[in-house]
Nucleic acid binder design. Structure first.
Lengths: 187, 187
DNA sequence: GTCTATAAGCGGATAGAC
DNA sequence: GTCTATCCGCTTATAGAC
């Protein structure tokens, strides 16, 4: 792996573990086994490197989500597959965690990939729910976009509960709870 | 307000805005209009002051939640009141955001009030859902603890979605989505 | 209790040699 | 492209005067 590549990968790891504010260029350089000069040669600075890292993580996450949402099965099964997909729960969401980073939120450029990724997933799930409504699997009274927001929020909030308690159990409980609601056919 | 009080309040504000990693003693002192000496006289250091601040915020949050969950109405209405309660959505949850802070999660002492608060709210809602099951308002097939996890996760994740998009709309959508599922009586 | 002084190291970056 | 040197301000304290 070449130097810019190692820098981006190290930054991705550190952003995931410690967030933007908690990640220093020095820590990145150590992990990438690169020198100061290399970093400032390939990138304008910390925000520029972080942007490259965030964009890549966003792209990867979108691909992973699409891989699950595009799978076979009924609309319910595809949403279920998204919710139950294997996750490193205690590490949290590498994209969602950035929303708690004041410097990321303060920068339109850094926030953009975060917003786009979460918006895209919500839109994708909303479409699947609408499909399910047409097929009669979901009640016509449901709103696709609202259900999608609840689904994605349950995942993002599940990470919060899991990290608070130091165990993935709460994440799994939330997912099961939401699925039990989604599965009950309305009268 | 006396000095220790001002220090705690300033720390609470900064932890909410910038998290633990993003909050420096210097910033606290400036906001509290206190000197270095005062802070180290009243507190052992940053972690000690942060602990006092987190404990107070946790206590306050629990009281606020209890105020809503203890209110009048059916179980559904009380859960709805919790979900719809007025919130400064774009500021995020002052307790939940701490779970994304590496130094908070790394410290059992700092994490404890976070865990206890979220656990307590989940337990409280779980009880209300079980009440609703007894009264036939909720399906007997639902699990109180799982629904509670989904409810709290939707709130916590709603903050993430809202902050990502820079608008409270996604938070509200998630809440409405969950409520629509909760309201549909199963066949 | 509060103030000022002092300190070792980090954060984020620039400059110029190689 | 990468390295070392250098920079200034911040971080997180400690020490001791008042």
């Amino acid at each position: 792996m070449n130097t810019p590549e190692r820098l981006i990968e190290s930054t991705r790891e550190l952003l995931w573990e410690r967030g933007y504010v908690g990640t220093s260029p020095k820590a990145i350089l150590e992990r990438a086994d690169a020198g100061q000069g290399s970093m400032y040669h390939h990138f304008k600075g910390k925000p520029d490197l972080a942007l490259a890292a965030i964009r890549r993580t966003a792209e990867e996450m979108r691909a992973t989500a699409e891989g699950v949402l595009d799978g076979p099965g009924t609309p319910y099964e595809r949403v279920e597959a998204y919710l139950r997909r294997e996750r490193d729960v205690l590490r949290g969401c590498p994209i969602g965690r950035l929303t708690m980073d004041p410097d990321v939120i303060a920068s339109d450029e850094l926030r953009a990939p975060v917003e786009e990724t979460l918006d895209w997933i919500r839109g994708r799930i909303a479409g699947i729910v609408e499909e399910g409504k047409e097929q009669g699997q979901f009640s016509a009274s449901l709103d696709g976009a609202e259900i999608a927001a609840a689904v994605v929020a349950t995942v993002q909030g599940g990470y919060v509960l899991a990290r608070a308690s130091g165990s993935p159990a709460a994440f799994d409980a939330g997912v099961r709870g939401l699925l039990s609601l989604l599965a009950s056919r309305p009268a």
